[in-house]
Computed example of a mutant assay.
Amino acid sequence: MAGELIRLGVPKGSLQDATLKLFAKAGWNIRLHHRNYFPDIDDPEIKCSLSRAQEMAMYVERGTFDVGLTGKDWVMEYDSDVVVVDDLIYSKVSNRPARWVLCVAGNSPYKRPEDLEGKKVATELCGFTEKYFKSIGVNVDVSFSWGTTEAKVVEGLCDAIVEITETGTTIKANGLRIIAELMQTNTQLIANKEAWADPAKRKKIEEMNLLLQGALRAEKLVGLKMNMPKAQMEAAQDVMPAQTSPTVAELKDPSWVSVEIVVEESTVRDIIPKLKELGAEAIIEYPLNKVI
């Protein structure tokens, strides 16, 4: 189909660079413009717009965007009525879910969420935090934080905070202590319900998800290619943890074969020396963009 088919919301802020990198590996190059919220993309069927991750689900639910990327936390925060197409486990720091945690000052007497009865809690995730404390029967005063949330505990403006973290480094650096994990979150590909019901738009969104997932899957994988003595193939297969059976091709010399495998990048340092001991030659390691 020629012309614009779907409107894509790209998260602005901390996830922006990681999102652009992921789309590039998936096959779409998105180019930003200075002080412009409408990036270019090399696909005439897609129109891009930037949006804060906190507002993305709202715009997708309203139909401003047909599809967008945002955190599971923000979908839950506003009970957004959208289709969750799939999880996309990536972030600005690591390929693992971030955590929303309940924190207090390091010297605070509070050790459990229940100890905060009647106390003040600051967070950007107000709706979810209120629902969490209600679910455990604890009454707290939840207030919205506009940023620098960690400092509010240190300055005595609140008794606890609910903040997002991946490594916990910033929380520890501010002298805070985690007393509970409230939720794990990750990026999700979400779609407007009407767009999802449109066959052409749904097909495009599903194809996008397929390639994004393939790019994510490839991030920790590499390809290995080598020539191997045919007599050593059985022994070689015992040290090759391939995603599937290795690809083996005959060479002009009938005593040798060409072998190609896909493996975890972290295992290469152990595999290559073992293959070399078995007589492998011309071993080539190469990066992968997508694994479908």
Rank of each mutant, 00 (worst) to 15 (best):
K220L: 11
M240Q: 04
K230L: 05
E206R: 08
M226L: 13
L224A: 12
E194R: 04
A173H: 10
A200P: 11
M208E: 14
A197K: 11
K203F: 13
G175E: 14
E234I: 09
P229D: 04
W196L: 01
R177D: 12
A173L: 06
T170Y: 09
A200T: 13
N209V: 10
T185R: 07
E219A: 08
P199I: 08
V222M: 08
E219G: 09
N227F: 15
A197R: 09
W196E: 04
V222W: 03
A197F: 05
W196H: 03
A197D: 15
T169V: 10
G223V: 13
R217I: 11
L189R: 00
I205C: 08
K203S: 14
K220M: 14
R202Y: 11
I164Y: 06
G168P: 06
Q184E: 15
A235E: 06
V162Y: 01
L176H: 09
I190Y: 00
V239Y: 07
G214I: 11
G223R: 14
L224N: 13
V162G: 01
A197V: 06
E163I: 08
A195C: 02
A173Q: 13
M183K: 10
I179W: 10
Q184R: 14
E207V: 12
V239D: 01
A173R: 13
V222L: 09
L182G: 00
K230R: 09
A180S: 09
L210T: 15
T165H: 04
L221Q: 15
P241I: 11
M226R: 11
N174H: 07
I171S: 01
L189Y: 01
I178Q: 11
I205P: 05
L176S: 07
M228S: 11
N227W: 14
K172A: 13
L211R: 15
P199G: 03
A200G: 08
L221K: 15
